[in-house]
Amino acid sequence: MGTTQLETVPEPKYWHLKTVLSEALDSEFAVGEILPNERELAARFGVARATLRQALEQLELEGRLQRRRGVGTTVAPPRVGVDVGSESGPHTWPGAPGDAWHTEDHACVAAPSTVAQLLDVDTEAPVHAVRRSRMTGGQQVASETLYVPAATVPAVPTDEQGTEGAGGTLHPTARARTVLRALHQCELGGQDRTVELGSARADDARRLDRLPGAPVLLVTTRYLVDGRTAAVSLATYRADTCRLSFSDGDAMSLMAS
Score class of each variant (00 low, 15 high):
G63K: 09
E144S: 12
R67P: 06
Q117L: 12
A55V: 08
T114R: 13
P90Y: 09
A48K: 14
H106G: 02
M135E: 13
E144Q: 15
L119Y: 00
P94H: 00
L59F: 11
R132T: 12
H106W: 15
P126M: 07
S86M: 10
S88N: 10
R79S: 10
L52H: 10
E57P: 02
R53N: 12
P112E: 00
L52Y: 11
V82K: 00
T73V: 15
A116M: 01
E87G: 14
G63F: 07
P112I: 02
V121F: 02
D105R: 14
Q140K: 14
R131V: 11
G95E: 02
Q66S: 10
D120G: 09
V115R: 01
G89T: 08
L61H: 13
Q117M: 10
R64S: 10
H128L: 05
T123N: 09
R68P: 05
D99F: 04
D122E: 13
L56D: 03
A125V: 14
Q139Y: 05
A110Y: 02
E87V: 10
D105N: 11
G63C: 09
R132D: 01
T74M: 07
V141D: 06
G85D: 06
P97E: 10
S143T: 15
V141N: 04
G70T: 03
D120R: 15
H128A: 02
Q140W: 03
A111E: 01
R69V: 08
A55E: 07
P97R: 07
V71Q: 13
Q58Y: 12
V71A: 07
D120F: 04
S143K: 05
L119H: 01
G63S: 09
L52Q: 08
G98Y: 06
A50S: 15
L119Q: 00
A110V: 01
P112Q: 00
D120M: 09
S113D: 10
L52N: 08
H106M: 00
A96P: 01
R69I: 03
H128N: 05
S88P: 01
A125T: 14
D105K: 08
A110Q: 12
E124L: 14
V115H: 01
Q140D: 00
D122R: 14
Q54I: 00
P94T: 04
A96M: 05
G98M: 08
G89P: 08
H102W: 08
Q54M: 15
R69Y: 06
T123K: 12
E60K: 13
R49Y: 02
G95T: 03
R79C: 03
V121N: 04
L61G: 15
A100T: 14
V109R: 11
D83Q: 12
A100S: 11
L61Y: 11
Q58G: 10
A111F: 00
A50R: 15
P90I: 06
R69T: 09
T123R: 14
R134Q: 15
V75H: 03
R79D: 00
